[in-house]
């Protein structure tokens, strides 16, 4: 479902004398449907960079990034937008939303953009929010004022509201209490069950051991850090 072949990434800093910084090279990886793969490597090794490249947020310098039938490295913006809507879910550590939009609508939005009727979309959003123990009195408030843990749960609900065939999870259990951590792990297990291909960053060792089928160290892809 997710296949990378010989992917590399460089940053060119035009305003700092055109310095070219190679950050990844020779990345090969595959995540099959129903599989969950964890990226490992010390901080700065390029785990997040790799996830962002798959999401189309960073441009790959070379290679192939196949998500389903789409090569993200070559796809037009329109194809990437369609991929993100329908195929590729992303739970980041940051919540970026229009201020004042109620939490319920923030979570329902991915479904609304797919053309699902508003009442159905909100019902599904409400279901996830209550599963993640977010008090109902917060649903009509904007998540911009929430605590870190609350925002994280909103992010997770938003990422799982649609049954994406492929998912990217950036530390999904960070800043969660035991009960909610358990809910998130169940959500991941259910997603694997229905055949989702999942690539994630899990610093939480127990969580990683429970849901991940493989661990992939990205250090080998990092120029200067390899070997």
């Amino acid at each position: 479902m997710i296949t990378l072949r010989n992917v590399s990434k460089t940053f060119t800093l035009h305003n700092q004398g055109g310095a070219v910084i190679p950050v990844m090279q020779g990345v090969d990886l595959t995540v099959s449907p129903g599989e969950c793969v964890s990226l490992a490597g010390r901080s700065g090794a390029g785990k997040s960079t790799l996830m962002r490249m798959i999401h189309g947020n960073y441009l790959a310098a070379s290679g192939e990034i196949l998500v389903g039938a789409t090569d993200v490295a070559r796809a037009s913006p329109r194809e990437i937008l369609a991929l993100r809507r329908q195929v590729l879910g992303y739970v980041s550590q940051f919540l970026r939303v229009v201020p004042r939009v109620p939490t319920l609508d923030v979570v329902a939005e991915p479904l609304l953009t797919l053309g699902i009727p508003a009442d159905q979309a909100r019902a599904r959003a409400a279901e996830l929010l209550s599963r993640l123990n977010l008090p109902e009195r917060l649903w009509q408030l904007s998540p911009t004022t929430f605590s870190g843990g609350e925002q994280q749960r909103v992010n997770i609900a938003r990422g799982f509201v649609h049954d994406y065939p492929a998912m990217l999870l950036d530390e999904p259990t960070a800043s969660l209490d035991a009960a909610n951590r358990e809910v998130v792990l169940q959500l991941i297990e259910e997603a694997k069950q229905r055949g989702a291909a999942i690539l994630g960053i899990f610093h939480d060792t127990e969580a990683r051991e429970r849901v991940c089928d493989r661990v992939l160290d990205v250090t080998g892809f990092t120029p200067g850090l390899a070997a």
Binding site: F11, T12, L13, H14, N15, R52, G56, N57, Y58, L59, P77, I80, L81
Partner: peptide, 21 residues
């Protein structure tokens, strides 16, 4: 030109890099 978050987060052109920073 490109997907909005890509252009803002990984700008390729010097001017865009300046603009974003």
């Amino acid at each position: 030109q490109g997907v909005t978050d890509q252009v803002l987060d990984d700008p390729q052109h010097g001017y865009t890099q300046l603009l974003v920073s």
